[in-house]
Design a protein around this nucleic acid. Structure first.
Lengths: 338, 338
DNA sequence: ACTGGCACTCAACCCTGGAGAGTGCCAAGC
DNA sequence: GCTTGGCACTCTCCAGGGTTGAGTGCCAGT
C-alpha cells in the first residue's frame, strides 16, 4: 500500500521537519528534494500517508509533520546510516583516553555523549554481575563504628557503614580472615548464599560483629545489580524552547528519578544494536513527547550496562543512533582493556 | 535618609513582589499593608527609594520592583525570621533518619532541601580535612591491574586503579604492610609528605609497584579537598517560566559545572550563619539573575562542607534562609552522631 | 508633612483586515 | 489510470488602530 514514492515522501518529510523544525508542505517538498512529481501528486500521497497515520497536520492550512508511527517507520526502514564526522571521532578518542577509574569514565562518557548528540545523555554505571569477590575489608573507625568494604574482580568497590560495638582489633582481624577465606573467588549469587550460611559457622565470640558485617555484605551484593545512573547535558533541553512548563518540566522530573532512568535504559538490555523508543512507545507518560535512544555497552558478563540519550521525538535519528552506537562501542572496548 | 516608613514600604514592596510576582503600585501597597498613609505619600517615598537605587520600574506606567540593592537591604535589615512550619520540621526528621552512609545522606539532603525550598539544591560532599588515614588496601584484580583503596577515620573510602604489572601476592602483601605501618593515623597533609618520602625507603623489589601505589595515594589525598557536589530539584527551575532561553539555559549550564558550584558554595565557608549572594553579587555572569543561599554544615574539622540553594532573585528570603539553616544544622548533627 | 486631584504615559488587550501558505478536489491530459 | 494544473477554501500570522486600566508625577490645598 505504500509504494516507493510514498516512502520517499515520508523520508523527505521527516528529514525536512527535523532540520527545519516547521511543518512541511507539498511545494517545499518538491523544491528541496528530487521527487520529480508535481506538488499535487505529493498532496495526494500525503493524504494517503495521513490516512494511514504516518503524518498529521497541526491545523488545516499547515504542512504535515510526522507522527510517532511515521518516525518509527523512518527509523526501521528509511533511515540511512550516517557515519560519524571526523571531529566526532576525534572527540570520542580525546574524551576517553586518560580516564582515571570507572567513576571518571562514566562522567566523561556522559559529557561526551551529550556533546555529540546535543541531547540529554544518560549513562548507567557498569554492573558486574559475572564478576567475583576479590577482597573483603573490615575497618574500625573508632566510636563504635566501622566499615565493610567489598572489592570485586571488575574493580568495583562498595562500602557500608556498620556498628562495630566494642569489638577489639583481633576480633576484627579474625572475622576479616574468615570472611575472605570463605568468599573470595565466588560470584555474587554464590557469595550471597555462602555468606548467609557462614554466620552459623562462626564461633560465638564473633557473632555480634559477624552478623552486622554479613548483613552489610548481603546488602552490597543485593543492591549491586540496580546500579547508579548519571545524567548530563541537561542544558540541551532548552532547545525544546516551545512549551516549557508543559514539556520540559515533566522531563526534568523524570531525569531526577533514578528508578525511571534505570527502567528506561533497562529496555535496551539484551538488544544487539541500538534501541529506539519513540514518543508514546515510552512507558512513562512524562516522557511521551520524547524519544529514547539507548544501547548496551561493555563485555558481558564482567561489566555490562546501558547508556543512551533522551531528546525530542523530532530528532535526527540516524546521527543520534550512530553516535550512541559508537560511544557504546568505545566505552565497552575501553572497559575491557582497563 | 531612609526613615522608618520608607523602610516599611521597601519591605512591603519586596514581600508583595515575591508573593504576587508582579510589579507593585502605590494603591495596592496601602490596601494590602497597614501603612496608614495615602497612595500619594507612598508615591513620594517610592520616588526617593528609586532615586537611591533600591527599587525600579520596568516601564513608566508600571509598579515598582526591588533591585538587587533593595533585596540586599531587605535581607540585611528588614527580613523577619520566619520559623519553619511543623510539616517542614517533620520532613527534615523523616528524610534524615535511616541514611545508610554518607553517599545516601547527601542524596537525601539534596532532595530534602529542594523540596522545602522549592529551589535547586546543591550539597557538597563532606570533606574530611582533619581526619586521619585509617587503612590502606592493595588489591590485585588479575590482568596486571589492581586497586589502591584509602580509608579515613571519617569513614570515607577512595580508590584508584593502578597497573600492578606482574607483581606477586607476597610483594603486594609486603607493600600493603609497609604502607599501613607508615601512614595509619596520619593526617592528609602529613601522610602526603610521608608517602612521598616512603618510596626511597622501599627495597628495590618493591619499587615499581610502590611507585604507582604511592602515586595513587598522593592523587587521592590531593583531590580529596575539592570534594564532589550533588545537585537536585532542577525541575523547580521551571518556575522561572518567563524568558527561557535567556535565563534558564545559563543556569542549567552552570549547574553542570562542578567547579562553578564548588566556588559558589565555597563563598560560604567560614561564615557563621547563612550566606546570601543576590544577583550581580554573584561571581558568575550566568548566575547574575539568580541568588544563592548557602551555609556551612558539619562539625569541624572531621567533616566540613557547605550546602545551599540557587533560585531567582525574587525569592522568599526569610523562609529560604530558615530552611537552609535548619537543614545545615540537622545534617551537621546527623554527621556528628554517625 | 500629608493628601486629593488631575493630566499623562504606556503596556496589554481586542478587533480587524490583508497576506501567505497550504490543502482538497476536480477536470483535463499523457 | 496515474499525474497535473487550476481553483476555491481554510486557517494562521502579522500589523495597525483604538480602547482600557493601572500607575505615575506633580501641584495646590489643608
Amino acid at each position: 500500500m505504500l509504494d516507493d514514492r510514498k516512502l520517499a515522501i515520508l523520508r523527505a518529510i521527516v528529514t525536512d521537519y527535523v532540520s527545519m523544525r516547521e511543518p512541511v508542505g507539498s511545494r517545499a517538498l518538491v523544491e528541496r528534494y528530487q521527487l520529480d512529481v508535481s506538488p499535487a501528486t505529493v498532496r495526494n500521497d500525503m493524504a494517503v500517508l495521513e490516512e494511514e497515520g504516518y503524518i498529521t497536520q497541526p491545523h488545516t492550512s499547515a504542512g504535515r509533520i510526522p507522527t510517532d508511527k511515521g518516525y518509527r517507520l523512518f527509523v526501521d526502514r528509511l533511515g540511512t546510516v550516517k557515519p560519524l564526522s571526523p571531529s566526532e571521532r576525534r572527540a570520542i578518542e580525546t574524551f576517553m583516553t586518560g580516564a582515571l577509574d570507572v567513576d571518571d569514565l562514566v562522567r566523561r562518557t556522559v559529557r561526551l555523549l551529550a556533546q555529540i548528540t546535543q541531547q540529554v545523555a544518560i549513562v548507567q554505571y557498569p554492573i558486574d554481575l559475572g564478576s567475583s569477590i576479590r577482597h573483603i575489608e573490615l575497618v574500625t573507625l573508632g566510636g563504635g563504628r566501622g566499615l565493610v568494604i567489598v572489592v570485586t574482580s571488575a574493580g568495583r568497590v562498595d562500602q557500608r557503614a556498620i556498628e562495630t560495638g566494642g569489638a577489639g582489633e583481633e576480633t576484627v582481624a579474625d572475622l576479616r580472615g574468615r570472611l575472605n577465606a570463605a568468599l573470595i573467588g565466588l560470584s555474587s549469587e554464590r557469595a550471597a548464599s555462602k555468606a548467609g550460611a557462614l554466620l552459623d559457622e562462626l564461633p560465638p565470640e564473633l557473632h555480634p560483629l559477624g552478623a552486622v558485617a554479613i548483613a552489610a555484605i548481603l546488602d552490597v551484593l543485593g543492591t549491586r545489580e540496580t546500579g547508579r545512573v548519571v545524567v548530563g547535558g541537561v542544558p540541551n533541553l532548552t532547545r525544546f524552547a516551545d512549551q516549557f512548563e508543559t514539556t520540559v518540566k515533566p522531563v526534568l522530573e523524570a531525569l531526577e528519578e533514578q528508578v525511571i532512568l534505570l527502567r528506561l535504559l533497562g529496555e535496551a538490555v539484551g538488544e544487539d544494536d541500538v534501541t529506539v523508543r519513540i514518543g508514546h512507545e515510552n512507558p512513562y507518560a512524562s516522557l511521551q513527547s520524547t524519544s529514547v535512544v539507548a544501547s548496551s555497552y561493555g563485555t558481558a558478563p564482567e561489566a555490562w550496562a546501558t547508556l543512551g540519550i533522551v531528546g525530542p521525538t523530532r530528532m535526527d535519528y540516524p546521527s543520534t543512533m550512530a553516535a550512541v552506537r559508537a560511544v557504546a562501542r568505545y566505552v565497552g572496548r575501553f572497559l575491557a582493556e582497563g
